[in-house]
């Protein structure tokens, strides 16, 4: 039982990171129906910004987190304006290929500038403490990762539900043309969506850096694709779905490694995804919509 609880604790931190990433995926998808494959790489850039903020300017972790989020928000908007906006009325697959292109570009430009070698987050930026709670080992890193993720998600919920911008985002994702008629600037709303999504990815990047200590230019690929799985699991385009999907995937992976075999962990994650898609194609939280004739 204790071991099971420990596995749950381990799964929560991993899940929180997946959830943060999945949110960005889902927001972008919800608004322009684009699978933004570069999302994982934006996370990687965020991790590097955080790294340099800590090592070169000696900032503390919270400042690094904010700097990375700000930088990646700009990067996200820039990518949208340069690469995705011209394709807004083209086929979805052309946009998808562009996203793959952006992803490769970010990976290899970082390799070119910063070498393929991994970099190590200095241990002193975030000294580790372990709390022993009735036999469970919980580190301050677990708490920090989990806590920051939850706080960011609450802020996001607030923005989407309570602010005018959030209303505009929801309106654009439901019906772009109607939104325009209501006087909403679609361009601006899309930019804001990218900014918020990318900032969340950057936060995830810095958290991964702190949690696992190492970063490298190809670190975004696997978490990126996993986060996409998480987003689809919860129902792509649906914000609470992405959170739940992220946590579910994190727990699932940890439990499979803990009780089954870690070799099949990825296969099980994809297998569950496919099962859910087959049973409820729109994801756990999705609404089934019929075809329009």
């Amino acid at each position: 039982m204790l071991e099971f609880l420990q596995q749950i604790v381990n799964g929560l931190s991993l899940g929180a990171i997946y959830a943060l990433l999945a949110l960005g995926y889902t927001m972008v998808y919800g608004i322009i129906m684009l699978i933004n494959f570069a999302h994982g790489d934006i996370m990687m850039v965020g991790a590097y910004v955080g790294f340099f903020s800590v090592t070169m300017f000696g900032t503390n972790v919270l400042v690094a987190l904010l700097v990375a989020m700000f930088a990646c928000a700009l990067l996200g908007v820039l990518i949208e304006k340069v690469a995705y906006k011209p394709l807004r009325h083209s086929s979805r697959i052309a946009a998808l290929i562009t996203a793959i292109g952006v992803s490769l570009f970010l990976e290899y430009i970082m390799i070119y500038i910063f070498t393929p070698n991994q970099r190590v987050f200095p241990a002193e930026t975030f000294p580790l403490y372990n709390y022993h709670l009735a036999g469970l080992v919980i580190s301050n890193k677990d708490l920090f990762v989990f806590g920051s993720a939850i706080i960011l998600m609450i802020i996001l919920q607030y923005i989407i539900k309570m602010t005018k911008t959030g209303k505009a985002m929801r309106a654009v994702s439901i019906d772009q043309e109607a939104a325009v008629l209501m006087g909403i600037s679609v361009d601006r709303t899309i930019s804001i969506t990218f900014a918020i999504g990318s900032a969340l990815a950057a936060a995830a990047g810095v958290l991964i850096g702190i949690y696992y200590n190492t970063i490298n230019p190809l670190m975004g690929i696997i978490p990126g694709i996993k986060a996409f799985v998480a987003a689809v699991l919860g129902g792509i385009g649906i914000i609470p779905g992405a959170m739940v999907g992220g946590f579910l995937l994190g727990m699932l992976e940890t439990l499979v490694s803990g009780y089954g075999s870690s070799l099949y962990r990825d296969a099980v994650a994809y297998g569950v995804l496919i099962l859910i898609l087959l049973i409820k194609p729109s994801g756990l939280f999705g609404k089934n919509t019929g075809d329009k004739v």
Binding site: L14, S262, D266
Partner: peptide, 20 residues
């Protein structure tokens, strides 16, 4: 006997098992 896959960053699940 446990295994992981290159690129993994989280080993806590299997380590917890080994600790037992």
């Amino acid at each position: 006997e446990e295994g992981y896959v290159n690129g993994d960053k989280d080993f806590k699940a299997a380590l917890t098992k080994i600790k037992g």
